[in-house]
Computed example of a mutant assay.
Amino acid sequence: MKTWFFTIEMTLLVMVALRLISGLIELTVAGLILKFNSIEKAVALNAMLALIGPTIFIASVAIGLIGMSDRLSISKFVFIGAGVLLILIGIRK
Score class of each variant (00 low, 15 high):
2 K>D: 14
4 W>S: 10
5 F>A: 10
5 F>Y: 12
5 F>I: 13
6 F>P: 00
7 T>S: 10
8 I>F: 13
8 I>D: 06
10 M>W: 11
10 M>S: 10
12 L>R: 14
12 L>C: 05
12 L>M: 08
13 L>E: 07
14 V>F: 03
15 M>V: 15
19 R>C: 11
20 L>H: 04
21 I>T: 03
21 I>G: 00
22 S>V: 08
24 L>F: 15
25 I>L: 04
25 I>C: 01
26 E>M: 14
27 L>H: 08
28 T>A: 11
28 T>H: 09
29 V>E: 02
32 L>C: 02
32 L>F: 12
33 I>F: 03
33 I>V: 11
33 I>T: 06
34 L>A: 04
35 K>N: 03
36 F>W: 11
36 F>I: 03
37 N>V: 00
38 S>L: 11
39 I>N: 05
39 I>C: 00
40 E>K: 09
43 V>G: 01
43 V>T: 09
43 V>A: 07
44 A>M: 14
44 A>G: 03
45 L>G: 02
45 L>W: 06
45 L>Q: 04
46 N>R: 15
46 N>T: 10
47 A>D: 11
48 M>C: 01
49 L>H: 05
49 L>D: 03
50 A>R: 09
50 A>P: 00
54 P>W: 11
55 T>N: 14
55 T>R: 09
55 T>A: 15
55 T>Y: 14
55 T>L: 15
56 I>W: 03
56 I>L: 07
56 I>G: 00
57 F>Q: 01
57 F>E: 04
57 F>N: 03
58 I>Y: 05
60 S>Q: 12
61 V>C: 10
61 V>G: 02
61 V>S: 11
61 V>T: 12
62 A>L: 14
62 A>T: 13
63 I>F: 13
63 I>Q: 07
64 G>P: 01
66 I>C: 01
67 G>Q: 08
67 G>M: 07
70 D>L: 07
72 L>D: 04
72 L>R: 02
72 L>M: 12
73 S>R: 01
74 I>D: 09
74 I>W: 14
74 I>R: 05
75 S>R: 13
76 K>D: 08
77 F>G: 06
77 F>C: 02
78 V>E: 11
78 V>F: 14
79 F>G: 00
79 F>K: 08
79 F>H: 11
80 I>H: 04
81 G>S: 15
81 G>P: 01
81 G>D: 10
84 V>D: 02
87 I>C: 12
87 I>T: 15
87 I>H: 13
88 L>I: 15
90 G>L: 09
91 I>H: 06
92 R>D: 04
93 K>H: 06
